[in-house]
Simulated assay, not measured.
Amino acid sequence: MTFRKLATYTLTCLLLVATTAGIAQPPRGPIVISPQVHADKKVTFRYLAPSAKEVKLGGGQFGAAQVPMTKDSIGIWSITVGPIKPDIYPYSFLVDGVTVMDPANVNFFPNERFKASLVDVPGETPLVHAMKNVPHGTVTYEYYPSVEGSTGSVVVYTPPGYDQSANKNYPVFYLISGTTDTEETFFKVGKTNFILDNLIAEGKAVPMIVVMPYGNPMARIAEQKKQPKPGDIVGRDSEDAVTRAKLFETDLVNNLIPYIEKNYRTISNKNSRAIGGFSRGGGQTLRTAFSNTDKFSWICCYSAYLSPQEMDTRYKNLVENPTKTNNDFKLLWVSVGSEDFLYQSTVEFIDYLKAKKINHKSLITGGGHTWMNVKEYVAQTVPLLFK
């Protein structure tokens, strides 16, 4: 084949490929920008649905619950709300009665049940969870051998300089997210990595490893065995709640901690281990720490509690010997929002600790059972750890 014939043949093939590719591509609709955060902290949300009869914005956590949106001539529904107080908020759309995420937004809320997108409204002064011009740590996804032959999943943060300091070992903070959340939630919603980066850069926090496990091993076992996932826990003080917390504790103590200490440069003693959690994760935190006083010295309970009845029965040894308990734990922190549906029970738990002379720190904030509060609690407690 001559050069000219070869060139003609090659060009023909390229044209055929290009034509075929063009035919194979589905038609593209209009570009939708959503969410659009304006300088005045107002936010415009948009959703393309030409055939929809009704679209509403589900932004209850920033004061825009089920707000009707308006459709333009090409089928884009939109609404502008605010100004919104700077923070990170979940939202969704209700399209003809069906709740959906925002397809124009890559940032989403990891959760087993509800599916929401995230909007980040920045502050005039960067908030504690904002990405700043400071040294950054590394976030790694890991898998480990877990309970009942399953494979566990965990997200691990290592602080700035970890990879460059080959001879340095670090304390570890085990941080557990709430009911129906996943191992990604403290990372993607709580922005724990940025909070740590910023506090370490300011000299307010000790460089530490943060381990963020999945708090529902029973569901993971069922999924990997091709069985239906179990329902949510009914009653935070129920036997079911205690049984599931025990399974998580077994996994954490017998499987995850050994895995982390084998694969990361940790300081492997109780004074260099902290445990914390939100909601269900807060209950798991208390039950795990109270059952393993030889494993943890630092406890951070966010929007959670144990009942006086459970304390009196299951943790009688802690209650009857407060002097030893106070020596065992360097920090027992409990925090909750005044509008949280767990507020009364959590305050009752705080009052119980006071009455039993068990040392603790407490913080009551405004707001409800939200990740806006959780970020604040993490930012308040991290500077207290390992000092």
Results as ranks from 00 to 15, higher is better:
residue 2 T to I: 10
residue 4 R to M: 11
residue 5 K to R: 13
residue 5 K to T: 12
residue 6 L to N: 06
residue 7 A to V: 15
residue 10 T to M: 07
residue 11 L to R: 09
residue 11 L to D: 02
residue 14 L to V: 10
residue 15 L to I: 15
residue 18 A to S: 09
residue 24 A to M: 15
residue 27 P to F: 08
residue 28 R to S: 15
residue 33 I to V: 14
residue 34 S to C: 08
residue 37 V to H: 11
residue 41 K to W: 00
residue 41 K to V: 05
residue 42 K to A: 14
residue 47 Y to W: 05
residue 50 P to D: 03
residue 51 S to L: 11
residue 55 V to I: 04
residue 55 V to N: 07
residue 56 K to M: 06
residue 58 G to S: 10
residue 59 G to I: 02
residue 65 A to L: 08
residue 71 K to R: 14
residue 76 I to L: 00
residue 79 I to F: 00
residue 79 I to G: 12
residue 81 V to K: 09
residue 87 D to M: 01
residue 87 D to E: 01
residue 88 I to G: 03
residue 89 Y to L: 10
residue 89 Y to V: 06
residue 92 S to H: 08
residue 95 V to R: 08
residue 101 M to H: 12
residue 102 D to T: 07
residue 106 V to L: 09
residue 107 N to Q: 04
residue 107 N to E: 12
residue 108 F to R: 14
residue 110 P to R: 06
residue 110 P to I: 03
residue 110 P to T: 04
residue 112 E to Q: 14
residue 112 E to A: 11
residue 113 R to T: 14
residue 130 A to L: 00
residue 132 K to G: 03
residue 133 N to F: 08
residue 151 T to F: 09
residue 166 A to G: 15
residue 167 N to P: 05
residue 172 V to P: 02
residue 175 L to D: 11
residue 175 L to R: 04
residue 177 S to T: 14
residue 179 T to M: 15
residue 179 T to Y: 13
residue 179 T to L: 15
residue 188 K to T: 09
residue 188 K to S: 12
residue 188 K to C: 05
residue 196 L to T: 12
residue 197 D to Y: 09
residue 202 E to I: 05
residue 205 A to Y: 08
residue 212 M to C: 15
residue 216 N to Y: 13
residue 218 M to Y: 15
residue 218 M to W: 15
residue 222 A to R: 09
residue 225 K to P: 03
residue 226 K to Q: 13
residue 227 Q to Y: 10
residue 231 G to R: 10
residue 232 D to N: 12
residue 243 T to M: 15
residue 243 T to A: 15
residue 246 K to I: 13
residue 250 T to E: 14
residue 251 D to F: 03
residue 251 D to I: 00
residue 258 P to F: 01
residue 259 Y to R: 00
residue 262 K to W: 02
residue 263 N to C: 12
residue 265 R to A: 07
residue 268 S to Q: 07
residue 273 R to C: 06
residue 278 F to H: 07
residue 281 G to E: 09
residue 286 L to N: 03
residue 293 T to G: 14
residue 299 I to D: 00
residue 306 L to M: 12
residue 308 P to V: 03
residue 311 M to R: 01
residue 313 T to A: 13
residue 321 N to E: 01
residue 333 W to T: 02
residue 334 V to P: 02
residue 339 E to R: 09
residue 341 F to Q: 14
residue 343 Y to T: 02
residue 348 E to L: 08
residue 351 D to F: 02
residue 354 K to M: 09
residue 356 K to H: 15
residue 358 I to A: 02
residue 360 H to N: 05
residue 362 S to H: 02
residue 364 I to P: 05
residue 366 G to V: 02
residue 367 G to A: 03
residue 369 H to N: 04
residue 372 M to D: 13
residue 372 M to C: 05
residue 380 Q to L: 10
residue 385 L to V: 08
residue 385 L to S: 07
